[in-house]
């Protein structure tokens, strides 16, 4: 039996994003105000999209506008970014993967599977369910965490981690 509810995963994901940027790139920021949104607008940037299955189902997206993505990748690799190149994809995927792995407690724990990131350039994404989008303000620019998750009513808690990290 499932409930159509969105667990409060966006805040832990935003804080995980800030931890990753702070630790790996010495980049600082703060989360903005979450808003309900049915679609993730990728715009001119790139989104790393993770599918969830098991006790929590849905989608998590980490969406970087192009300017922010390029600045962050420059920090991560020390190289001039080549938007859309394989090395650029690798860096975006790794940063997004570390963000999501750092918030596993909040997105279902060990009974939830999390896919590898799928990168989406431009356009928009529709999860088919209401989602929450939270901006993350950083020195490199603003990027967005998008969650559209439903959880099983039978899931007692989400306090243990598991899966890929």
């Amino acid at each position: 039996m499932t409930q159509s509810v969105t667990p409060p995963a966006h805040t832990p994901l935003a804080h995980s994003a800030l931890r990753v940027l702070d630790a790996m790139l010495q980049e600082h920021g703060e989360p903005g105000v979450p808003e309900v949104c049915d679609r993730l607008e990728v715009g001119d940037g790139v989104a790393a999209v993770f599918e969830l299955w098991g006790s929590a189902n849905g989608i998590v997206g980490v969406c970087f506008p192009r300017d922010a993505a390029e600045h962050i990748i420059q920090l991560a690799t020390g190289q001039p970014p080549a938007f859309g190149a394989p090395s650029f994809d690798d860096a975006i995927a790794e940063i997004a993967d570390t963000i999501v792995a750092g918030a596993r407690d909040a997105i279902g724990g060990p009974d939830t599977g999390v896919s590898r990131p799928r990168l989406v350039y431009e356009g928009s994404l529709d999860a088919g369910a209401p989602g929450v989008c939270v901006p993350v303000w950083t020195e490199s620019g603003t990027f967005f965490i998008w969650t559209a998750i439903t959880v099983s009513a039978a899931t007692p808690d989400n306090t243990t981690t598991g899966g890929r990290a």
Partner: peptide, 9 residues
């Protein structure tokens, strides 16, 4: 090097 802080892991 791992992001998983679970005790079991």
């Amino acid at each position: 090097l791992c992001a998983d802080t679970g005790a079991d892991r």
